[in-house]
């Protein structure tokens, strides 16, 4: 090697200019009317963002700030003047002059029905946000009748699309046995509202592993590995990002699941502390959930630029030794 011309390392490098970041074109503003109020939002903003900017609480289920909106739950629908159907606030962009109603009779009916449909077909016992929404919109899912008997193991996983054989009686549900095939995850698809978030987190929005996808069709649609292969034979790398985005507890860390089964899971006695992952040098923020001086779960904040809520297997699960050394 030859570095004769190298600067003397003993002399500190002087302070340089501040980095120049690419110029951001100032977004032009779009004026719309929402619930009779005039709202001005940057071009490209969604109606959801517009609503939130003036304090209108728009309910969402499939929307998450760190994922591409898929607008499938339809809980956030609003009424736009001139549009035949309601539009999803989470993905519809504000256009100049739009006149939007966020709690018209039509909007409230659709939201109530969406809630009733979901709650009458899915176990929401670990999704507390539903209770709040149901009260708010006066949803009465029980009016669709008693639930039909649950599916047998793999029954929903092997159903082919096309003609169905309706159950003798009762409201069809997605109830089915829990899938436990590994030490880290539990999949309880009887709690799945098919919001696509896990598929997005496993896919291009974060992990790009594509271990799961939506399979089946219609009411038989479901989240699945290929041929319902156990996770341990699938592409899954146990980053837990699907669990991180699941809104209903259908996907759950095994530790949490077992504590819930044992009746020892108690969020009111848990603390959450943000710190940095002890493994590689990327610097992922971990939110450490501690109950009785033991780590019970690790998540990551969505608003964190490095992780955007996503972690890898080590950050997500590599804390066991801290509990074990006690």
């Amino acid at each position: 090697m030859n570095v004769q011309n190298a600067p003397d390392p003993k002399i500190p490098v002087p302070r340089g200019p501040l980095p120049i970041l690419p110029a951001q074109r100032p977004a032009s503003m779009v004026e719309i009317t929402m619930d009779g109020k005039s709202v001005s939002v940057p071009q490209g903003s969604t109606l959801l963002e517009a609503a939130r900017s003036i304090g209108i609480d728009t309910p969402t289920l499939c929307f998450l700030q760190n994922l591409t909106p898929v607008n499938v739950c339809r809980l956030c629908v609003v009424e736009v003047e001139g549009s035949r159907a309601l539009v999803p606030a989470c993905s519809r962009q504000a256009e100049p002059g739009m006149v939007v109603q966020t709690h018209s009779e039509r909007v409230r009916l659709s939201r109530r029905l969406v809630l009733e449909m979901l709650v009458s077909s899915v176990d929401i016992s670990t999704a507390p946000q539903f209770q709040k929404y149901m009260r708010r919109f006066g949803a009465r899912p029980e009016r669709f009748g008693e639930a039909a008997p649950p599916a047998a193991t793999d029954e929903r996983d092997t159903a082919e699309p096309g003609h169905h054989h309706p159950p003798e009686a009762g409201a069809a549900t997605v109830a089915q046995p829990v899938k436990i095939d590994n030490e880290l995850y539990v999949r309880d698809y009887g709690k799945c509202i098919l919001c696509y978030k896990c598929v997005e987190a496993c896919g291009v929005d974060a992990q790009n592993t594509f271990a799961i996808a939506v399979a089946g069709r219609g009411f038989g649609a479901r989240i699945s590995t290929e041929y319902n292969t156990p996770l341990t034979d699938s592409a899954c790398v146990y980053c837990g990002n699907c669990i991180g985005v699941c809104p209903t507890g259908a996907l759950m860390f095994r530790r949490e699941y077992e504590m819930r089964q044992a009746g020892t899971w108690d969020e009111s006695r848990q603390t959450r502390t943000d710190t940095i992952c002890p493994y590689c040098g990327v610097g992922c923020t971990l939110t450490v959930h501690v109950q009785e001086e033991r780590i019970v779960k690790v998540t990551s904040p969505l608003d964190q630029e490095i992780t955007q809520g996503h972690l890898c297997i080590k950050g997500r699960f590599g804390w066991e030794w801290v509990n074990q050394k006690k």
């Binding site: 499938v72 739950c73 969406v114 449909m117 009458s120 038989g220």
Partner: peptide
Amino acid sequence: RDESCGQCVPCRIGTVR
């Protein structure tokens, strides 16, 4: 019910109900 793609809630479950 059979031909709904299953993507959105109103159609996936509405056609069943």
